[in-house]
Simulated scan of single mutants.
Amino acid sequence: MQVNQQPQKHSSNFVKSNAKSLLFGSLAVAALGLSGCATSEVLNSGSSSTRTTSATQVLVEDQLVAFGRPATALPNMPASSVVIVGEKNSYVLSQGGPEMVKLLTNLTPQNIRVDNEMSFYSPNNDGHFQGEMKLSYAKLKDEFKRSDYQFFLQSGGKECTDASDERIQAQRFCFTIPIKGGVYPAVSNLSLIQSKYNALTKPYPVSIYTKTETTRTTNDGATTAGKLVMLPFALAFDVVTFPFQLLDAASK
């Protein structure tokens, strides 16, 4: 009987071994199949002529003319609104206006500089935008008074003296003002303002952009500019400018 049992044991082991081989073989085939699918998907994706991407879309590009205030109160805008007067549109600040007025009316305009591009973000292109204005103020160190430093502290100014300032014994303070606002048509008295001020020796662009999900061909160029939406019922208005040309002095 021992002679008959021994072959059965070998036969059982053989069956188990074959089963394991078949199992591993099936898993390997499945893995290769999955790998093949993944590769195929990548290849198909790479060869596709279209793709969806998140793109920055410029809605308007403008040129700064002046800073000012609305001649009359605007609906849904604070009385302290500041207007960035552009050639194409007016950009009325609903937030950050008082801080701008405080700096522009308390500091010597010839010593003020705009340190960032006026590029503002409109999340929904609904006439509203947001961003920040960065201004700096510099004078010779021996011209500063104690009251100047007190004003900088109260206004959130931070020292940002650079090597160029140090070479002439000057000191610089920087201000960052978060802003929000709405887009209006070009001011009614734009021609008068342009005749009042000399052309800026350095152009200061103003732009508003949004971000969109776009589907485009793989080899397409940059996205085309969209149409800027203004606030509902926004009308043109007169503006009273500040009594100096801030950026012209800064650009020389």
Rank of each mutant, 00 (worst) to 15 (best):
A170M: 04
Q171C: 12
F173E: 00
F173T: 11
F173W: 09
C174S: 11
F175M: 14
F175D: 11
T176Q: 13
T176L: 10
I177R: 00
I177Y: 01
P178K: 06
P178D: 09
I179E: 05
I179M: 01
K180I: 08
K180V: 11
G181C: 03
G181L: 02
G182M: 01
Y184C: 08
P185T: 01
P185Y: 04
P185N: 03
V187T: 08
V187N: 00
S188A: 15
S188V: 02
N189T: 00
S191I: 06
L192Q: 07
L192G: 08
I193A: 07
Q194R: 00
Q194N: 07
S195Y: 01
S195V: 03
S195A: 13
S195R: 12
S195H: 12
K196W: 06
Y197W: 05
Y197G: 10
A199D: 11
L200V: 15
L200Y: 05
T201P: 07
T201Y: 02
P203K: 15
P203H: 03
P203Y: 13
Y204P: 03
Y204E: 15
Y204G: 11
Y204H: 04
P205K: 10
P205V: 14
S207M: 10
S207Q: 12
I208W: 11
I208R: 14
K211G: 10
T212V: 11
T212R: 15
T212Y: 09
E213I: 10
E213C: 15
T214F: 05
T214H: 05
T214G: 03
T214Y: 08
T214L: 07
R216N: 12
T217I: 04
T217C: 13
N219C: 08
D220K: 05
D220T: 13
G221A: 09
G221D: 07
A222R: 07
A222T: 07
A222D: 05
